[in-house]
Amino acid sequence: MSFLDSFFSRKRPEASSNVARDRLQILLAHERQAQEGGDSTLLRTLHAEILEVLARHVSIDEDNVQIKMDRGQKCSKLEIDIQVPQSGLRAQVSTMTPNEDL
């Protein structure tokens, strides 16, 4: 029965090796972020300084700035993800207003 099922079924299930690869990529991205001792100081400094610059112009929550380092053989990728909420943008507009008046 199961043989016939697999014989006649049109769509083949996704290869389990692809599932394994995707799971590992997600897991290791998190674990590397948590563990890399040397990088974590760098990431923390970057995080604090980026927040500081942003805070001058937008009101933003600490959790909305995500910094990730992806280790590569030849070069590493630094990924900075900043989510600006609507309320943050409004705050920006309000601080801009006095300047426009001038």
């Binding site: 290869a15 590992l24 590569g72 053989q73």
Partner: peptide, 15 residues
């Protein structure tokens, strides 16, 4: 057959 991580998969993940 897609039943085992390939050489390329592992090399890519661990760089």
């Amino acid at each position: 057959r897609g039943e085992m991580l390939s050489v390329e998969d592992v090399v890519g993940i661990l760089s």
